[in-house]
Amino acid sequence: MDSVTKSYFENLEAKDKDIQIEAYNNIIAATKEEVDWAYEVWDQLKGWLTDTDNHRRSRAAQFLAGLAKSDPEKRIVGDFSALWEVTRDPKFVTARHSLQSIWKVGLAGKEQKEMVINHIVDRFQNGADEKHYTLIRFDMIQGLKNLYDVLKEEEIKQLAMDLIETEEDIKYRKKYMTVWK
């Protein structure tokens, strides 16, 4: 890992919030492409998934989701359940930020894509008792759209349409459809 990237990870712990935000944004930007330093931070980030600090949990989930494409050993497959758990975090903003990033795991390969899609489908179909469930559903549909936009696989779009059709409330069905317009 180069010294600049290393400083970003160090600056996540800075006292100055502006420095933290800048570091976070730079790491997110870096993970949009494949990187050669994923395993240098992997175990630390995995540990952060259960940290007492919700900011660390959120960052770890977002960073690991982005780093999945830089994971030739497919560690994300074994670590996915811990990552998915953060999408159910007691702190809703942490859960939501994690859920909004989880689709990136699907960019890492066929197995990872199927894993993400299967979790989204299961939760869409079986999570109606969750607090803020319509927002969670919206985020999952948006995640499928993001995955579709990158991969251009019609099956992903069709799956999203099928899920949207299962929504009984017309108002929410229309809201979910706005993602695909």
Rank of each mutant, 00 (worst) to 15 (best):
T166L: 13
N118F: 07
R57K: 14
F63L: 05
I164Q: 01
L107H: 01
S58W: 05
T50P: 01
V77E: 10
G109V: 03
F92E: 06
Q20C: 14
R75G: 02
Y176M: 01
K69M: 10
E85R: 13
K175L: 07
I136Y: 05
K110W: 10
H132P: 02
D122S: 11
K15L: 11
E34Y: 06
S7P: 03
E155V: 00
K17H: 13
A82Q: 11
L159D: 04
I117G: 06
S70N: 08
D43G: 01
A23P: 11
K171A: 02
M115W: 13
A65N: 08
L135Q: 13
P90H: 09
E33Q: 15
W42P: 00
V77N: 05
Q62I: 10
F138M: 09
I170N: 01
W180D: 06
K17R: 15
E153A: 00
K152M: 06
V4D: 07
S70T: 08
K6M: 12
P90K: 15
W48F: 07
Y8S: 05
D79T: 04
K175F: 02
L159H: 00
V93T: 14
A68C: 08
W37E: 01
R123C: 06
I141P: 04
E40D: 12
T52D: 08
I28Y: 08
S3G: 02
E10L: 10
R123W: 15
I120A: 03
N25D: 08
D18S: 14
T178R: 08
E10V: 05
W180G: 07
I117E: 04
M140Q: 12
E34S: 15
W103H: 14
T94A: 09
I28D: 10
M140L: 10
T178Q: 06
H97Q: 08
D51C: 03
L107V: 01
Q112K: 04
R137E: 02
T5S: 05
K181N: 14
K131V: 09
V116G: 15
I21A: 11
I136W: 08
K17D: 13
Q112L: 03
D71C: 02
K32L: 13
A61H: 04
I28V: 12
D2T: 03
I141H: 08
M140C: 09
K145S: 14
N126G: 05
V116A: 11
R75E: 02
V116N: 14
Q62G: 07
P72T: 05
K6W: 11
V116T: 13
W48G: 10
W48P: 04
E10K: 12
Y172E: 02
I156P: 01
R173N: 00
E114P: 02
F124Q: 00
F80W: 03
M115I: 12
L64C: 05
Y133T: 01
L135D: 15
K181C: 09
Q142D: 13
E167Q: 13
K17P: 11
M140W: 10
F80D: 07
Q112E: 15
F138I: 10
D53Y: 02
Q20D: 04
K181W: 04
